[in-house]
Simulated assay, not measured.
Amino acid sequence: MLSLLLLQVLASCLWLGHSEVVTSFESSCPQFFFRKTPPNEALEPENPAWICQRYKNQYYFATLYDRSRRIPVYSAYLYQPAAGKRPNTWLVEPQLIGPTYPKTMEREWTLLNDFSISVEEIGKHQAVLQDYKNLTGLNRGHLNPSSHHPDSSSRTATFTLTNIVPQNEKLNGGSWNNYEQQTMIRNTQGCNNTYVVVGAVPGNNYIAKGRVNKPSYIWASACCEVNTSHRKTWAVIAENDRDEVELLTLGELEDTLTLLYGRSRVSLFDSGCPRI
């Protein structure tokens, strides 16, 4: 019986994705940031988790996560869109429960049944599926969207609740979707590599009886390498209760986030990315 249980656990680990809570992005998964430079400390929450999001033994993006508000601060990735099916599974992060748990994205069902972890333990420092049920006017909004990735594995990796915020459903399906699907295609014409950082500014409201923060703003930024000597940038921001996206320069977004966070000066990319 014990050997059968071990085989079941092993099979689930082999099938499911891998992600890892690390001490820094620079030392673990720097490839998702231009010149291996993540955003500076001005965005860091009081209780952060740095997650290198890995699936089927490959890293696909990086997420700075707020354990207390149970939402991502930002997700960073390389823009590589392609046609494909939208995944239909949702995953959570076992290492947000504790460092002794597997470095694997897992389904809640797997943690409940194969690892005997309670929903309360899973949800202590992260959102769970129940938090996003019975929402009114909001839905699960990806920071790193699955459509910006080239294959099934990379798209499935984005379907972790550590990459999700409560987003206004009209915005998510309207102007924000237009930005993700249309503006990004136009802006990346001629780009060899496009580095993207998408984030959420915490708000004053919560869902799920105070468990999960509803962001006040959703924002996105990109730095595109046209060639070794030429780069271009752009950015957007949207209030999370209106179906409207404002197009900004990178410098304007950093100015806005500096005011919204009220801390030190925000820097989202290495200085080699133009601010105007």
Rank of each mutant, 00 (worst) to 15 (best):
R54S: 13
A49Q: 06
L253P: 01
E254V: 10
E93H: 03
G272L: 07
I185G: 00
E121M: 09
F115D: 02
N227Y: 07
Y55T: 04
P45H: 06
T158A: 11
L14I: 13
A49C: 09
R67C: 02
G123T: 07
L78A: 02
N192S: 13
P94V: 14
R54M: 07
Y217A: 01
T104N: 14
L259V: 14
D270N: 15
Q189F: 06
Q181D: 03
V245L: 12
V21D: 01
Y79S: 01
S75T: 14
I237T: 15
L5A: 14
V22A: 03
P274S: 12
T89M: 09
L112S: 02
L259E: 15
L91V: 03
S75E: 05
T158G: 04
T37N: 10
L6R: 08
G84Y: 11
M1D: 12
Y101S: 02
L112C: 03
T100N: 10
A157V: 05
L91T: 06
S229P: 00
L6Y: 05
V212Y: 05
R67S: 03
T228Q: 12
E254G: 06
L257D: 07
D243H: 08
V245A: 09
Q31H: 10
A49L: 11
N240W: 12
Q126D: 05
I218N: 01
Q8V: 11
E252I: 02
H125V: 00
S175Q: 14
S154R: 13
R70F: 05
P102I: 14
S147H: 06
Q58C: 01
T23G: 11
A62C: 10
L247T: 13
R69T: 03
K56S: 08
N134K: 13
A42N: 10
S75N: 09
E26G: 01
L78D: 02
A157M: 07
E121K: 12
E252P: 02
S116V: 11
C29P: 01
R140Y: 06
V73R: 03
R231S: 11
V165K: 01
E121Y: 01
P45E: 03
I117K: 00
S264K: 14
S24K: 13
I185S: 02
A49G: 05
Q167I: 10
A62P: 01
R107S: 11
L250T: 06
H148K: 02
N178D: 15
S216P: 01
T188D: 08
E121C: 02
V236P: 00
A83E: 15
N134Q: 13
N213Y: 08
G272T: 14
E121L: 07
L5G: 00
A222C: 04
S216D: 10
R69E: 09
